[in-house]
């Protein structure tokens, strides 16, 4: 219950106009800080929903695949330059961002992750690594402005954000692949 409450607080903090305006003013903070933090807020709140609607999750997300699919759809949707632009221009879309990321992506990620086997988990991380590398490449080397609301320079910064995050994920995958925990634990 406690963590759900903190999740709610985090969500309110992120939605508060001064915070949201500040985070949205820099492209990389918008995509790589605000959005993940919204997902984290959802993951914290997930415990409340899991307890309240345990039957629902059991029926609809018994093996974690539907949940993780929903998570992927939402995440990929918000990585499109067009959708980010729209979130800044239309209040309706901005509202959808604040709801979809925590409640559709965050909750389903928390509920699904433990239900997936290691093959599923690794495939998700690998596909996101590839996606991040691709998007990094796109944002860094795109000759044109992809978002009406951000300068090309901001776009390049975001591209490097994607690349460095994917490096972090590659290190993690390497660690998982080369280090056998059973040798140590």
């Amino acid at each position: 219950m406690n963590q759900s409450f903190y999740g709610l607080l985090l969500w309110i903090f992120l939605v508060a106009p001064p915070v949201a305006n500040f985070m949205e003013s820099v492209m990389v903070i918008h995509m790589h800080m605000q959005m993940p933090m919204l997902v984290i807020a959802g993951m914290l709140m997930a415990r409340f929903f899991q307890k309240r609607f345990s039957g629902f999750f059991e029926i609809w997300n018994s093996n974690g695949v539907p949940g993780i699919t929903l998570f992927i759809v939402i995440m990929v949707y918000w990585m499109l330059p067009r959708t980010m632009d729209e979130a800044l221009t239309s209040h309706l879309v901005e509202g959808f961002k604040f709801i979809s990321l925590p409640f559709l992506a965050g909750i389903s990620l928390r509920d699904s992750w433990k239900k997936l086997n290691s093959f599923g988990k690794n495939s998700i991380i690998i596909s996101f690594t590839v996606l991040f590398l691709g998007l990094g490449w796109l944002y860094i080397w795109s000759p044109v402005q992809l978002c009406n609301n951000y300068l090309v320079f901001q776009q390049v910064t975001l591209g490097w954000g994607f690349l460095t995050t994917s490096i972090g994920m590659v290190v993690y995958l390497g660690y998982n692949f080369f280090i056998d925990p059973s040798a140590y634990e």
Binding site: F153, V156, T164
Partner: peptide, 26 residues
């Protein structure tokens, strides 16, 4: 430690990507 090092690398990326890109691009 593997996990903590990955977290460290991501925190470093969070801090350094914005200013370093600016210093290099501009």
């Amino acid at each position: 430690w593997g996990i903590w090092i990955v977290v460290m690398l991501i925190v470093v990326a969070m801090a350094y990507v914005i200013p370093l890109t600016e210093f290099i691009v501009n």
